[in-house]
Simulated assay, not measured.
Amino acid sequence: MKKLVLLCFIPLFLIGCSNEQTIQVSGVATDEEKRTEIEDLIRNMEDVYTGTAIMVEDEVLVAIQVKPWLGFKEQKVEKKLQKEIEEKYPDLNVVVSSDFKMHWETQKLLEEEDEKKVTDEVKKLKDLAKEET
C-alpha cells in the first residue's frame, strides 16, 4: 500500500517542481530590439517563473509571478526588475507588478487585436498598479 501511494505522489510532486519559465512580450508598433532585451531581462531574473510585458508607445507594463516559495520577496524582485529596465531604457515609463490580477489582465491583452483598446487598457492597468502601491 505504501509503495502504491509513493508511486502516485512522486510523479505529481515532480510535475509541480517544473523550472520552465514562460515569458511573453508584446508591443504595438514597438522596436523589436527593445522587446527582445526586455524579454531577456525578465528571463534572467531567477526568481521569476512567468512574466508578461506589454509595450505601448513609450510605456511598458510588466506583470510577473515569482516562484511560490519566494512570495515574501516578490516586492524586492519587482523593484529590482523595474530598476533594471529603467536604467536600460530611461526614455520608457515602466511599471512592474507582481499582482496576479495584473498578470491575468495582461495575458488577456496579448490576445486582443484592437490597438486602441490595448493602449487604453494598458493606461488603466498602469494607473491601478500605481494606485495599489
Rank of each mutant, 00 (worst) to 15 (best):
K3C: 00
K3W: 01
K3Q: 03
V5I: 03
V5Q: 06
L6D: 10
L7Q: 08
I10K: 00
P11I: 11
P11D: 12
P11C: 07
L12K: 14
L12I: 13
L14E: 01
I15W: 15
G16M: 07
G16D: 03
G16K: 13
C17H: 04
S18E: 05
N19Y: 10
N19T: 13
E20T: 12
Q21G: 02
Q21R: 09
T22A: 02
I23D: 14
V25D: 08
S26E: 05
V28S: 06
V28F: 08
T30A: 08
T30G: 07
D31Y: 02
E32N: 09
K34N: 13
R35L: 14
R35W: 00
T36V: 11
T36F: 13
E39L: 08
I42T: 07
I42R: 13
R43I: 02
M45Q: 15
E46K: 08
D47R: 15
V48W: 06
V48H: 04
Y49K: 14
Y49W: 15
G51S: 03
A53L: 10
A53P: 04
I54H: 00
M55L: 14
V56C: 04
E57I: 00
D58M: 07
D58S: 11
V60D: 05
V62C: 05
V62R: 02
A63Q: 07
I64K: 09
W69H: 09
L70C: 01
L70K: 15
F72A: 14
F72P: 07
F72C: 13
F72H: 12
E74I: 02
K83D: 13
E84L: 15
E86I: 14
E86Y: 14
E87M: 09
E87P: 01
L92D: 09
L92P: 03
L92E: 08
N93T: 10
V95E: 09
V96Q: 13
S97I: 03
S97R: 07
F100T: 01
F100N: 03
K101I: 11
M102Q: 12
E105H: 08
K108M: 01
L109P: 02
L110F: 07
L110V: 01
E112K: 05
E115D: 15
K117D: 02
T119D: 12
D120R: 09
V122C: 06
K123M: 06
K126H: 00
D127G: 03
L128Q: 13
K130V: 15
E132P: 00
E132K: 10
T133F: 04
